[in-house]
Amino acid sequence: MADPMKIRAAMSGDKVEVKILMSHEMETGQRKDAKGAAIPAHFIQTVSATHNGKVVLAAEWGPAVSKNPFLSFKFTGGKPGEKVSVTWVDNKGDKRTDEATIS
């Protein structure tokens, strides 16, 4: 199981600003190890963020997203104290879900 995500969700005016830092290798499959063998690709493919059961952002990623990916966006309709939940799934089927409370 991968390390937890760091999620911040804070009010910014009438919007909720969500910042997510995930912990993931994001191996492209293009690199080679010391022996010249290709390192297999390992990267997050889908990300979704939900608030009160409603998807507020969905994403599909390729291997070109940086290692330990950062993602930030804003949505309307959130209130302090409510929760934002983020899930990612990688190409090996690993997944992780974390939650943050809107402040």
Binding site: Q30, L57, W61, P63, A64, T76
Partner: peptide, 27 residues
């Protein structure tokens, strides 16, 4: 990114109520 081995880096779906703007980091 045009000169990456595969062009598409990320594709975000923006539902109603979400601001049409995302920040991320790419290789």
């Amino acid at each position: 990114v045009e000169k990456n081995p595969n062009m598409l880096v990320a594709n975000f779906s923006i539902p109603d109520g979400t601001e049409a703007g995302v920040t991320t980091r790419a290789k």
